[in-house]
Design a binder for these strands. Structure first.
Lengths: 149, 149
DNA sequence: CACCAATCAGTTGTGCACAACTAAATTGCG
DNA sequence: CGCAATTTAGTTGTGCACAACTGATTGGTG
């Protein structure tokens, strides 16, 4: 595997390349359902937490309204979500999964096993990687339970 | 730190978030020079290896011509690189750093220390992370030397 | 109450990524 | 040689990311 030695020592390039490689592993699983990877992340939050405000989606995903607004518009056009402006504070908008959006979860199924295998890392290494990324992201690592690709 | 438990176990989301966080750490260092992070990667290859073909840039960065062609056009407009079609095989195009492009290297200086510190990881952890990402990327880890953010 | 600062969603503009395609040059095989 | 398959760079179209901005709403303070 030929690599420029200018890059192969850069953690940042490895992150950049690994992130793109990972999303292209998701692509063949998501494409048939018309979802992109960031759209899938939004749907996962909705599946797990139920209706959520755009503000909270942005905090969780670390994305601003300039990214989320058009993305949510596309999910709405596809019929997966529904917008609803809050009555008590008309600045905030709630995002609800629709029935078809909820069905997507079982349609897509569990991708974690296929994706974890594709990395070629052992369970231990995946856990290590997870912990390091958590720390680098400035978030608390997940002490007890399992880890998911 | 508020996180949806739907995402905090996903290595893939951690990769995605860490990669974006890392490039936004580079941004304030590169913006004053008018470079984006992918443009900086191209220049690093040129600084290290000298003139390079577009094909090799694509293989090293894992980017196709759909991404590289417009990116290189912008670097050319800024005067950092020069295109030259090979004479013996007119399909391949060589990219040469110009004099101003070469000067950029010392203008920008070494960012690795500042960037490594910003992650908050120890040298050991950075090395671990580097090795794991290398393996996940399907490339050989760097056994001997140091590691760079 | 009046007003100012902060919050929130949305828009605009730029630059990646990547799929799908085009066109030209080269290679290889019968 | 002749010609089909391959390689290479470029274009087009879609969808993120993100900076900078707008406009509406809300909260806090004198």
């Amino acid at each position: 595997m030929r690599e420029s030695t200018a890059l192969d020592r850069m953690i940042c390039f490895q992150l950049y390349a690994a992130s793109r490689a990972m999303t292209s592993l998701y692509r063949p699983h998501l494409d048939p359902h018309g979802l992109t990877y960031p759209q899938y992340l939004v749907m996962r939050i909705l599946w797990h937490d139920g209706p959520t405000t755009i503000r909270d989606l942005g905090r969780t995903l670390r994305l601003d309204s300039g990214t989320l607004s058009p993305l949510l518009k596309r999910l709405e056009t596809q019929g997966h979500i529904r917008r609803e402006r809050a009555t008590h504070d008309e600045r905030t908008v709630w995002i609800h999964p629709t029935e078809t959006g909820t069905h997507l979860q079982s349609d897509i199924g569990d991708l974690s096993h296929a994706l974890a295998c594709a990395t070629g890392l052992t369970t231990d290494e995946l856990h290590q990687l997870h912990t390091l990324l958590h720390r680098a992201n400035g978030t608390a690592p997940t002490p007890p339970g399992g880890t998911t690709a």
